[in-house]
Design a protein around this nucleic acid. Structure first.
Length: 115
DNA sequence: AAGGTGACTCAGG
DNA sequence: GCCTGAGCCACCT
């Protein structure tokens, strides 16, 4: 499945803002992008990142359990560990309680970001 | 038009 | 913690 250009761009935009050493979830990205475009969901975010081909720090985007995508799991966890992102004790997943970026209720609606 | 698919999520057992 | 099933959205046969 592919996503259209506009959606892809928005997703990349948001993911690029995730600072080194933290992470976010597909659901959160979907919420912010959805706020701007009024469409999409977590699955669309996944599709967008898949299509983006590494143009953004995709490894900072994990699922609701703090687990990176199955295909790139080892790779992602390694990168996250290297950049100092908080992981759980066994390093198998991100500790979202401390690593998760908290996007305020208005992120994505700031002037110049919306349609 | 109809059914399949997936880098998702949530509730249940 | 792991597995299931239902819900989900947009694209692809």
């Amino acid at each position: 499945m592919r996503v259209d250009e506009e959606y892809l761009e928005s997703v990349l935009d948001v993911v690029e803002t995730v600072p080194r050493g933290s992470a976010t979830t597909y659901g959160d990205v979907a919420e912010v992008v959805g706020r701007r475009l009024g469409r999409g969901g977590p699955r669309q975010v996944g599709a967008a990142l898949r299509d983006s081909g590494g143009a953004v720090p995709w490894w900072r985007v994990v699922n609701a359990q703090g687990r990176p995508p199955a295909h790139q799991q080892t790779r992602a966890l390694g990168l996250l560990r290297d950049e100092g992102c908080p992981l759980v004790a066994d390093g198998s997943r991100v500790d979202l309680r401390s690593a998760r970026v908290d996007w305020g209720p208005a992120v994505g609606l700031a002037a110049g970001e919306g349609p």
